[in-house]
Design a protein around this nucleic acid. Structure first.
Length: 611
DNA sequence: ATGCATCGCGCG
DNA sequence: AAAGCGCGCGATGCAT
């Protein structure tokens, strides 16, 4: 297999640029034009090519793409140009930006310049290229020459970086990068234009009627101080709270803030209307995302931009202004956007969810064997938890009691305290318990799952060890190893990558060291329970990654949302396809024998219809 | 005009 | 001793 490194230079101007519009819109726009590109086959001399679309097309088709791996820095961009404009479909896509993010942390600068500097492979060109607003034909021969040097240099840097970073990079992760990029580069999902148009009208109408009921202007609702003034005018004591970020007093206007919620039942009906309008108009997601979908529908199929290694736990994230991982799905009529996403002609979509994967990983990792066994047998672990909490037989557990058990299983496993548990329970289900009762429930959880509480302590000890610049391993079958490089703590993961706690430091608190590490947004507190959560999330991501690759052998994976995978399956074999996909999602990787995995799936013509 | 911090909110 | 966690996007308010 050949390695082809590429970089496209394309037309841009003040408005038509990647700073202003999405990658999808930019590449599909009528103004799109290739100024030129640099191509390097294996270690051959890098070539520069510039010419008309037809000339570039012809030139590009002289390479053997079908047997090549194509690498670029941010290959989402170059790969999409190859596919959408030049009908070129390589065997494998690589991306030095993706690899850099996985190796050196999601926090560090991922620009080609920054990564090149880190590896000392040379500097990115600094010459000021007068390219803005210039079409290919506007460049003089000398200007084009300078541009070619610049572009060739970029490709050479990218090639060197791939050699250095790619050598030790896990093969499976390379394939995951490839599959992730293809969700965007090879779009097959379609959008239901009529449904979207109707939905946009509905959403706007709904918001307007909320506003009409108050008789105030939208901007007075959206602004915190102005909204506070409206409430004060009604004689309301404006609810305040302490900011979790700054510690200062701030307005408590979030939909889960108790004081604000109470205003929703205020005796003054105008106050009720104001609160309802504020809540109903504050989130613009439904409206903006619907508009983006409508715009995309006018241009073609739906490319799914998923960012490889977005979280320091390795999870994927959204990208390109249209986060496909947080599409609404709860509440009445909540799935309209998902329902607008449709399988291509002759296909159905299968949406398969891994069941409670993080809770299962936690039980396995901490070697909480009774919980592992319960998961394995397919028992209702939430009911079992509730049975212990309330001292009733499993079959007598009420719906409300089961919900308490569920909240405990999903939250208390990472050290949640009584105060937080009480609030969470109230916010999520309206169940109100006393602080003493909350404390009792937390204690029941911790006693029952004592191995898990031990694991928090092991993770805390790991932080201590890392801060002493040492190495070691812990966890079930020594799955989790850690080392320290300088001040950077690293938790090694079974896929060959690691989670980093950069510049790990601590302050001596009254009751022991309080650890923190550096992120892009400043220092983050870190402690045993949180490390436990991070590791479980990372391991769950590795498991679903392996499963995604298995599924890809047979079906096109169109997107993933953390614990779910959405595939397109030919209509006539949808039942067999669904069975195959479920089989893949129950696959237990070799490094985690005994992991109790399960899944559930549904299929439909639309994403939102998969139940 | 543009960038940054903060908050809220959607998902897992 | 105890502390649930992980994202991205959009709006506002304020600084440049």
């Amino acid at each position: 297999m050949d390695l082809i490194t590429i970089d496209f230079e394309t037309y841009y101007d003040k408005d038509y640029s990647l700073r202003k519009i999405t990658t999808e819109e930019y590449i599909r726009d009528d103004r799109f034009e290739v100024i030129g590109l640099a191509v390097k086959v294996n270690n051959d001399i890098t070539e520069w090519a510039s010419g008309s679309h037809e000339e570039i097309y012809e030139y590009l088709h002289t390479f053997d793409w079908a047997n090549s791996m194509v690498v670029g820095h941010n290959n989402l961009f170059d790969g999409a140009i190859l596919g959408w404009h030049f009908d070129i479909h390589p065997k494998l896509f690589g991306c030095t930006l993706c690899i850099a993010r996985a190796l050196h942390g999601v926090e560090v600068g991922g620009s080609l310049a920054a990564v090149a500097k880190r590896y000392s492979v040379g500097a990115k060109g600094t010459e000021v290229l007068d390219a803005i607003g210039k079409r290919r034909e506007d460049f003089s021969a000398q200007e084009l020459d300078a541009y070619s040097d610049y572009c060739i240099n970029d490709v050479d840097l990218c090639y060197e970086l791939f050699k250095l970073m790619g050598k030790s990079f896990p093969k499976k992760e390379i394939h995951l990068i490839d599959r992730t990029l293809r969700m965007f580069i090879e779009p097959i999902l379609e959008l239901d234009k009529e449904l979207l148009a109707d939905h946009l009208v509905d959403v706007k109408r709904r918001k307007q009627s909320l506003l009409d009921a108050t008789g105030v202007d939208k901007k007075d609702l959206m602004s915190n101080p102005k909204f506070a003034a409206l409430l004060e005018a009604e004689g309301v004591d404006v609810p305040m709270k302490e900011s979790l970020t700054t510690g200062k007093q701030t307005y408590a206007f979030a939909k889960t803030d108790a004081g604000f919620k109470a205003l929703g039942q205020h005796e003054n009906l105008h106050v009720q209307a104001l609160v309802a309008a504020r809540l109903g108009t504050k989130s613009t997601l439904e409206e903006t995302r619907t508009q983006r979908f409508i715009d995309i529908a006018g241009r073609g199929a739906l490319p799914v931009p998923i960012r490889y290694y977005a979280a320091h736990t390795g999870r994927w994230g959204g990208d390109d202004k249209i986060n496909m991982q947080n599409l609404p799905s709860r509440g009445v009529d909540g799935k309209k956007l998902k329902k607008s996403i449709t399988a291509p002609e002759g296909y159905m979509l299968v949406d398969c969810d891994s069941s409670q994967i993080e809770a299962r990983v936690l039980a396995w990792l901490a070697n909480q064997q009774d919980l592992v066994d319960a998961f394995d047998k397919g028992e209702d672990v939430y009911k079992h938890m509730a049975s212990d909490i309330y001292g009733v037989a499993v079959e007598d557990v009420t719906k409300e009691q089961r919900f308490v058990g569920k909240t405990a299983i999903l939250g208390a496993g990472y050290g949640m305290g009584a105060q937080r548990f009480k609030e969470q329970l109230k916010a999520q289900s309206g169940v109100v318990i006393s602080l003493d009762e909350s404390r009792r429930i937390i204690n029941v959880y911790r006693d029952k799952n004592w191995k898990i509480t031990h694991f928090w302590r092991a993770c805390q000890n790991m932080l201590v060890e890392m801060s002493r610049n040492s190495r070691g391993s812990f966890g079930f079958l020594n799955t989790v190893k850690f080392t320290t490089t300088g001040l950077d703590g690293r938790v090694h993961l079974p896929n060959g990558l690691y989670m980093r706690y950069d510049n790990l430091d601590y302050e001596q608190g009254e009751r022991g060291p309080e650890f923190n590490y550096m992120t892009r947004k400043g220092r983050n507190r870190i402690y045993g329970g949180k490390v436990t959560e991070n590791i479980c999330q990372a391991l769950a991501r590795i498991i679903i990654g392996e499963q995604l690759l298995l599924i890809s052998k047979k079906y096109k994976v169109t997107m993933t949302v953390h614990d779910s995978i959405v595939c397109a399956v030919p209509k006539k074999e949808v039942k067999q396809g669904q069975a195959y996909i479920e089989q893949c999602m129950r696959y237990v990787p070799t490094w985690c024998k005994g992991m109790p995995l399960d899944c559930e799936s549904g299929f439909d013509k639309t994403y939102g219809g998969c139940e």
